[in-house]
Amino acid sequence: MTPTTSAELARAGWRKSSHSGDEGACVEIATLPRVVGVRDSKDPGGPVLLFAPRAWESFAAAPPRR
């Protein structure tokens, strides 16, 4: 996976997950050309998890675990 710069992450179009509720436990994702970024919406300047697009697609398509 090609590294993504902090400038690319800052310019990314972050959006809140449709599975996040209003109680504050929210994640945001940004789809960039080479990676998908995931971060805590309450800490936009904090750490970002980076996934290869195929790995993210597999994760997002998996059924919820109970």
Rank of each mutant, 00 (worst) to 15 (best):
M1H: 10
M1C: 01
T2W: 03
T4E: 01
T5M: 01
A7M: 04
R11E: 14
R11V: 00
R11T: 06
G13E: 09
G13D: 11
W14M: 02
R15W: 03
K16S: 06
S17I: 03
S17T: 04
S17Q: 08
S20A: 08
D22F: 11
D22N: 15
D22M: 10
G24V: 09
A25C: 05
A25G: 11
C26R: 11
C26Y: 10
V27R: 05
V27F: 10
E28T: 02
I29G: 06
A30L: 06
A30R: 12
T31D: 07
T31N: 02
T31V: 09
L32D: 07
P33C: 01
P33D: 14
R34W: 01
R34K: 02
V35C: 03
G37H: 11
V38P: 05
D40V: 06
S41E: 11
D43E: 14
G45T: 13
P47W: 13
V48T: 13
V48L: 04
V48H: 09
V48M: 07
L49W: 04
L49N: 08
F51W: 09
F51E: 05
A52W: 10
P53R: 08
A55F: 02
W56R: 03
F59M: 05
P63L: 04
P63V: 03
R65E: 12
R65W: 08
